[in-house]
Each structure stands twice: as C-alpha cells, then as structure tokens.
C-alpha cells in the first residue's frame, strides 16, 4: 500500500481531517476505470499526433511530390501519397488537428450556451423561459444538417470559426432543458434563497451559485458534445458543406480518399481509422467521466 499525498499532508499538518479535494477524488475514480484510462490515453496520443506529429515529417500538407502519385506507404511517405502527389501523413494529421479543434470549440460553445440559456430560463422563469423554450423547440424542429447545409456557402475558405458557431447553435437545446429543470429546483435551495435575500444580483447568483452546482452535468455534456460535433463536422465536410478547401479536415480527407479507396486503400483507411479511434476514445472518456461524477448511475446508458 502506498501513501497518497493527502495522507502524508494529513499526518504532517495541524488539522487532521482535511478532506481530499473533489478534483482529486474525481481523477482517482476516473483513472480507476479501464475505460477512462484507455480513453484518456488514446485521446492524449491523438492530440500529440495532431500537434507534434507533423514535426517529424519533411512534408507539409501543401507539398506535392511529383515523383510519386498514388504511391503506397513507404519510408519516404509513411502513409503513401494521394493522386495529386500530396503526402497522406501530412494531410491526415492536418485534418485531424482541424477536426479536433472544431470538435472541442463547438462542444465548449454549445455547453456554454446550454448552461446560460437553461440557467436564465430556469432562474427568471416567465417570458425569458418562454422565449428560450420556443427558440429551443424551433431549433429542434429544424434538422441541424439542413440549416448547416443551407448556410454552407457562407463557410468559405478560412471561415471555419463561423461554422463552429453555427454547429454549436444546434447542440445546446436538450442540455438546456435539463439545466433549466435543475435550476428551478436549485432556486428553492437555502443557499440560493439566502443569497437572494442578501441582495446579490440575479446574474451573479447564476454564475456563482447555480452554475457551479451543475458543473458535473456540464462537464459530461461537453464531452458528449465533442464526439457529436466531430461526427457532424466530418460528415458535412465530406460533402463540401462544412470545412471547405483549401482548409482540410478529416471529412475532406476521407472524401478525397473514398474516391480512390478501392485501388489505393491507404488514401482512405488511415483518415477513417483515426477518426473512428478518436470518437471512440472521446466516448469512452466521457462515460468514465460520468461514472466518476455519479457512481450511483454506473454502467453505460
């Protein structure tokens, strides 16, 4: 048996029972599950590959090797080359980087939106609640794919931040409804009432008392949204409706590769494999995180 840090600190410090911090408890629970360890490790690997991987290759995504068109993997081109002579390794990692960034940003924005919309609707009630509820219903009635496709001409080259925002606009509704319900019940709790009677302004109550109490839900929601956003982004980009050339994402790489996949499998399988492994890792980590926050609701849902 090993002494963990807080046990040592507890023996040395004057106050005996300093409770372990919540973050540390969560981390221990998270890492105790095999899913969590595997998901986190693979995800870390993907990030390392996406951001540090290109440093080890002499080729950049824009380079074309005119001596090797559609060449199979070799020491010169680790993942082979495309029909244009572009290096698959460089292009795929560039796409992976963009897909990871888009997924993370869209998830963060949508969770923030869900938290704000849900908390304001639940706390203020009345017209705020009604208007936000209508907005959520409206966005649920319009398929996200449809609106993103309609707006795709606006996401030209270099406009991917706009795409991220529109993507996030379609991921917040369901969580917002959950947050709203929880806010309504939090509103009746003593500490929120006390803050209100002390004259703390409502917006400050939401940010310092309501939202911190929903942090576990929000963190888990953000992880779930990362995989949803990555899947949506790659599917739309595949058809030229999301990230558009000359920007690269895993979706555009897979679209290019699928045309030559039958006789040049390396153009398709590396990108497709990386995408599936990334989403799988995010899902595994998300499930483990949920279990860590809420051990009572153990098991995949």
């Amino acid at each position: 048996m090993t002494l963990s840090e807080e046990e040592v600190a507890g023996e040395l410090g004057p106050a005996m029972a300093a409770p372990p911090s919540r973050g540390r408890v969560l981390a221990r629970r998270f890492l105790a599950s095999r899913q969590g360890r595997a998901g986190a490790a693979v995800l870390a690997l993907m990030f390392a590959l996406a951001f540090a991987g290109p440093l080890f290759s002499p080729w950049s995504p824009a380079d074309k090797d005119f001596t090797a068109f559609l060449a199979p993997p070799s020491p010169r081109h680790w993942f082979g080359t495309l029909q244009t002579g572009a290096d698959v390794y460089a292009v795929t990692l560039c796409g992976l980087r963009r897909s990871l960034i888009v997924g993370l940003l869209a998830a963060l924005v949508s969770t923030a939106l869900a938290a704000l919309a849900g908390a304001f609707a639940g706390y203020f009630g009345g017209w705020t609640d009604r208007v936000l509820g209508w907005a959520a219903d409206l966005l649920l009635a319009l398929p996200a794919f449809l609106v993103l496709a309609i707006m795709s001409p606006l996401f030209g080259a270099g406009q991917w931040p706009l795409f991220v925002i529109v993507l996030a606009l379609f991921l917040w509704m369901v969580t917002a409804k959950i947050v709203r319900g929880m806010t309504i019940s939090l509103r009746q709790r003593e500490f929120v009432r006390a803050a209100r009677y002390l004259g703390v302004p409502p917006v400050k109550i939401i940010f310092s008392h309501v939202l911190p109490n929903l942090s576990s839900l929000l963190i888990v929601d953000a992880t779930v949204n990362v995989s949803a956003a990555i899947l949506a982004e790659t599917s739309l980009s595949y058809f030229g409706l999301g990230i558009q050339p000359p920007d690269v994402s895993l979706g555009t790489v897979i679209a290019d590769g699928s045309r030559t996949a039958i006789y040049a499998p390396w153009t398709f399988w590396f990108a497709a494999g990386l995408l599936v492994v990334t989403v799988l890792a995010v899902n595994l980590a998300g499930d483990a995180l949920r279990d860590a926050f809420d051990p009572a609701a153990k098991g995949p849902r």
Binding site: A272, V276, V279, L280
Partner: peptide, 11 residues
C-alpha cells in the same frame, strides 16, 4: 454498439 456509434455514416 460502442464501435458503431463512433463510426460516422460517411465512413
């Protein structure tokens, strides 16, 4: 099911 949920339709 876990694997299938991670595979986008295009793939």
């Amino acid at each position: 099911a876990y694997l299938l949920l991670a595979i986008p339709v295009v793939v």
